[in-house]
């Protein structure tokens, strides 16, 4: 346990010493602070209050007691919760509408219908804000995080550093996995900080506690882990951080958007091309498509194709097996 703790500490401190990680924390802080300030802008606050008022009227019309902002928030929360509990697994505006008592008439009822529409907009606003943050963070945090963490793996393999680590009474598997775990923990902390703060700001201000937004943390860390697997594999073979970053960014930024447009592209290919494209689809982490799936999950939209997520996860496992095998077998 001391050894693992030592490894994690060393990795944490090395990452911290890289100013980019500090920069990412600063950027994350700026994001939620700006969001908080934005939510306090008079017009936005007024808009939110108006939406709350309409929501409150609806609730009052149904139960006659939800007049305070807290009650309104609780109502919105319950609507969200009800819809979340269903199979869509997120705040589903349609479901929210369906579930509100007295709304069986499909939005009939003058003010009631307007209130529900406002409630829908209210939730859509929350979802929109959360989607923007999660999608932007998915790209920015992962790509910048890789940029800051990639040199760390090359540094691990440096003569004079790796010799000393390997001379300690611990297996190479533990050393490799301890290093990767340290990097992933740091990214988890960063993601939890950003997403947690944004979620708190939006939820406290609007009153809709959409816990699904926090799923973005898991998706971001998972995708980061898979791409860091490419970094690890390329670096352990070539000891070149530059090459590792080129390959990883090439896969994430240039190849994966094409893979995400698989259906459209396949129509234009012959059998051989189709086969080649399929091979590429299953061998390269589908960074773009997984991001798209994450967005759908956040919205509660049904995900019809899980192939990208599954193949990316499998490729991730293979990447770590390959990198780990090479790390254990090679001379330093």
């Amino acid at each position: 346990m001391h050894k693992l703790r030592g490894l994690l500490y060393l990795t944490f401190r090395e990452l911290w010493a890289k100013k980019i990680i500090i920069g990412l924390f600063v950027v994350s802080t700026v994001v939620w602070v700006v969001l908080m300030l934005f939510m306090n802008v008079e017009e936005v606050e007024g808009g939110i209050s108006a939406l709350r008022l309409f929501g409150g009227e609806v609730a009052t019309a149904q139960g006659g007691s939800a007049t305070t902002p807290a009650d309104t928030a609780a109502f919105a929360d319950s609507v969200a919760a009800d819809s979340v509990d269903r199979d869509t697994a997120t705040v589903d505006p349609e479901m929210a509408q369906r579930d509100v008592p007295g709304n069986e008439g499909g939005g009939q009822g003058g003010d009631q219908g307007g209130g529900l529409s406002s409630m829908t907009s209210f939730m859509q606003f929350t979802l929109l804000a959360q989607t923007v943050v999660s999608q932007a963070a998915y790209w920015i945090v992962i790509l910048l995080g890789l940029f800051s963490a990639a040199p760390l793996f090359a540094r691990l393999l440096e003569t004079g550093h790796i010799d000393l680590l390997l001379s300690k009474p611990m297996s190479r598997v533990r050393l490799f996995s301890g290093h990767v775990l340290g990097v992933l923990l740091m990214v988890t902390v960063l993601a939890a900080y950003l997403f947690g703060a944004v979620w708190l700001v939006l939820s406290l201000k609007i009153g809709v506690w959409n816990a699904k937004f926090l799923l973005s943390i898991l998706i971001l860390v998972g995708m980061f882990a898979i791409l860091y697997g490419i970094i690890a594999l390329v670096t352990v073979w070539t000891e070149s951080t530059a090459l590792a970053l080129i390959v990883t960014y090439g896969a994430a930024i240039f190849v994966s958007p094409f893979l995400a447009a698989r259906e459209s592209i396949r129509r234009a290919l012959n059998d051989t091309g189709d086969l080649a494209f399929d091979a590429l689809y299953y061998l390269v982490p589908n960074f773009a498509e997984v991001g798209y799936v994450a967005g759908k999950l956040l919205h509660g939209s049904p995900v019809t194709r899980w192939e990208a997520v599954i193949s990316t996860a499998v490729v991730g496992v293979l990447l770590y097996l390959g990198a780990g095998w090479r790390f254990v077998r090679r001379d330093f």
Partner: peptide, 9 residues
């Protein structure tokens, strides 16, 4: 840190 890696309490 290196002491911890060596397993020293």
């Amino acid at each position: 840190t290196y002491g911890a890696l060596s397993g020293v309490a």
